[in-house]
């Protein structure tokens, strides 16, 4: 089974391509959104093909709607299969969320209640995805702005059960845990303590924004805040080094700024490796 290097990586943005090619391996891997590489040809594939020669790659889907009530979109699954066959990424991940309904793409990662029924549906969808892609996938915990009265599981228990039944791994987004914890009022450290960290194959770190009423929005447009770095450090201390991605999708800074943010994560990973040695 392939896996990402246990190093810090960055989201790939086309505007950074020239700087990346000119730089000497400033990050350990790159991640791209699958749906941005589903065109027939052109610069996106030319850039990704070149990047792939030099770096480990994570392909991150944002449109499969694994948490949807309806059957998975088989045409989209096939597009993902073609992409994974073409680029042979070290990791493929998707979200514990839904984004399509009634033949319409809703362009957001929407929350689902955590019940026996949704657990079954999510596991069925992961089984199907893993069968089509012929690989284990990682499932990412969502940013939440609301919760459901009908939920019978807390999220860590729901994710643990998904991992146990489907054999998938987890993509732990530490910023999402923090955002949800503030919005829904739970203790993020307790959440992390209940998560099966051995199943975590990748970590996401990102910045968020704060609304006037105190609600946090997972905006991916700012540096990672100190409280999230602290949670991240506690995860690495417990679980060991894990491939860690800095996500920056909005107000994307110059490449050196992104590298500096990744270097902070790399320093924490290195520190752990030194202590462990």
């Amino acid at each position: 089974m392939t896996e990402l290097p246990r190093r810090a990586g960055a989201s790939f943005k086309p505007q950074h391509f020239a700087a990346i090619i000119a730089s000497q391996r400033a990050v350990g891997f790159f991640e791209v959104h699958a749906e941005n590489y589903m065109g027939a040809g052109g610069p996106p594939h030319a850039m990704l093909g070149k990047l792939r020669q030099d770096y480990p790659l994570s392909i991150h889907g944002v449109g499969l709607s694994i948490g949807g009530e309806e059957a998975l979109d088989e045409a989209h699954l096939q597009r993902l299969r073609v992409l994974c066959e073409r680029y042979a990424p070290e990791s493929f991940s998707e979200h514990l969320a839904w984004s399509s309904h009634g033949g319409e793409f809703l362009a957001d990662l929407l929350p689902l209640p955590y019940t026996d029924d949704t657990l079954q549906t999510v596991c069925d969808h992961i089984d199907r995805t893993q069968a089509v892609l012929g690989r284990r996938i990682l499932l990412e915990n969502p940013s939440l702005y609301l919760s459901f009265a009908e939920s019978r599981f807390e999220e860590p228990e729901f994710l643990s059960e998904v991992v146990r039944r489907s054999g998938c791994g987890l993509l732990l987004d530490v910023n999402n845990v923090f955002v949800s914890s503030v919005n829904l009022g739970f203790d993020p450290a307790q959440y992390l303590a209940r998560l099966p960290l051995a199943a975590v194959g990748e970590i996401h770190l990102a910045g968020h924004s704060v609304m006037a009423n105190g609600t946090l929005i997972d905006s991916h447009g700012a540096p990672v805040i100190d409280a999230v770095w602290a949670l991240y450090q506690s995860v690495i201390a417990r679980a060991g080094a894990i491939a860690t991605l800095i996500e920056w999708d909005r107000d994307v800074p110059a490449w050196p700024v992104l590298v500096a943010e990744a270097a902070k994560a790399e320093a924490i990973l290195t520190q752990h490796r030194c202590q462990a040695a």
């Binding site: 009530e69 309806e70 309904h101 929407l110 919760s147 459901f148 009265a149 919005n183 009022g185």
Partner: peptide, 9 residues
């Protein structure tokens, strides 16, 4: 912040 919305439709 708890919503009774229970169907994706």
């Amino acid at each position: 912040m708890t919503t009774p919305l229970n169907s994706q439709a």
